[in-house]
């Protein structure tokens, strides 16, 4: 029992597990966002606890705490027995961008955007260098599906207040959710076309973090034209093998959305 021992116990504190609350909160926020945006559909069954914990990279204990919180918020329902599991319940309240922006400082938002722009830009550059016709075809198909979905979307974007009209408005219109899924898929396809599994996994992770904020900007009818043009230009540059252009457009695609998030944050 000497100074060496007390030094050891100090080290134990240093290496003690980081507060679990932050992880639980991160899982809750990610799933709640996905449900509010309609990315996880009403009635959809979530993967098993073990698979979900594995995919999110958290312990089952953390996951269970998060699921409990989601149950309390009425966002999921758990059924026991055969055919049981956790099922999504569409929320009464739509995704609230301002509520999500409020806890973030401009510095944090800017940094999140810097990170995402770096990943998206690097992925697009490598995709331009390495794409084969099949990869480009996939991007083109997503753009076409987005054009179709976009023609019917945009009915409830950004109008949270006073919109208590019905459950169908709970997660935005169906085509809004469809458009977000296609937007996410398009960027995932660009990342996969880079042939880098690490960049693709990072793209998936960042979509979960900043995607809901960016899609909230993209949903705004005022931005639809710009977003569509940027998507088309990313695909065109990749098809042309123009790596510098692909990176530039992919970076500014993120930066433009983040700029609007920063401006919005300043009005709160």
């Amino acid at each position: 029992m000497d100074s060496a021992d007390s030094a050891d116990s100090a080290r134990l504190v240093v290496f003690a597990p980081v507060d679990n609350t932050a992880r639980v909160h991160a899982v809750v926020r990610r799933l709640a966002d996905a449900i509010a945006l309609g990315l996880l559909a009403d009635g959809e069954q979530l993967p098993s606890e073990a698979e979900l914990a594995g995919r999110l990279g958290v312990s089952t204990v953390t996951l269970r705490e998060a699921l409990m919180a989601l149950r309390q918020q009425g966002l999921i329902e758990t059924r026991r027995g055969r055919g049981g599991g956790s099922f999504v319940q569409a929320p009464a309240r739509p995704f609230d961008l301002d509520e999500r922006l409020l806890p973030l400082t401009l510095e944090e938002l800017r940094d999140l955007g810097d990170h995402y722009a770096a990943i998206a830009g690097a992925a697009a550059r490598l995709a331009a260098l390495r794409s084969l016709p099949g990869d480009v075809e996939r991007l083109r198909r997503s753009l076409e599906e987005m054009a179709e979905a976009g023609s019917g979307a945009g009915s409830v974007a950004g109008s949270g207040a006073g919109s208590d009209a019905g459950s169908d408005a709970g997660s935005g219109s169906g085509s809004d959710a469809g458009l977000r899924r296609l937007d996410g898929r398009f960027h995932l396809e660009v990342a996969a076309a880079s042939q880098s599994a690490r960049l693709t996994r990072e793209e998936i992770r960042l979509q979960a973090d900043i995607g809901p904020l960016i899609w909230a900007v993209h949903d705004d009818p005022a931005h639809r034209g710009r977003v569509r043009a940027e998507h088309a230009e990313i695909a065109r540059a990749i098809e042309a093998g123009d790596d510098v252009r692909a990176r530039d457009v992919a970076e500014s695609h993120v930066a433009n959305a983040v700029e609007h998030l920063l401006e919005r944050r300043l009005t709160l």
Partner: peptide
Amino acid sequence: LRDLNPESSALYDYTG
């Protein structure tokens, strides 16, 4: 284990 309803994710249509 994967719910493969393409309605719920744009990724799940594997026929492409």
